[in-house]
Amino acid sequence: MLTAEEIGEIEHEAKNYPVRSAVTIDALQIVQRHRGWVSDEAIQDLANHLGVSKADLDSVASFYNLIYRHRVGRHVIHLCDSVSCWVMGYRQVREELEKQLGIDFGGTTADSRFTFLPVVCLGCCDHAPAMLIDGDLHTDLSPGSIANTLERYL
């Protein structure tokens, strides 16, 4: 079931569009903000609420990079793997993250603390390599700076 709070936020956003189904992507983000991810059950509940088919809604949910259709950890790391970061040492940073976390892209640590994912160019190429953790931007990364950065996310 969607909560009253979720429904309230969805209906607020829906006013921005002349067609109800246009709020779909906002609605997915609202549910994810409250629950951390979008489960099969949430897809069904949202489909009922918006009056769209479950299959249509899932095809939208699974299309977008930042809608999580699997359970994620408490903190989500998005490491930029686009070209400027690649030139500036992305591989060494990725290797260090893999070592510290013990997981590769797509993985979640056993204690559910971190999920590790790649992301398209974060638009701070003059401070590459870069990553986002829970939406916070971290730039000018080096393998040596990773441990300290991760410590801030418990």
Binding site: S82, V83, V120, G123, C124
Partner: peptide
């Protein structure tokens, strides 16, 4: 939707 790799101007 500035997502062209290497582009950081609109930000």
């Amino acid at each position: 939707d500035e997502m062209e790799p290497g582009t950081f101007k609109d930000r």
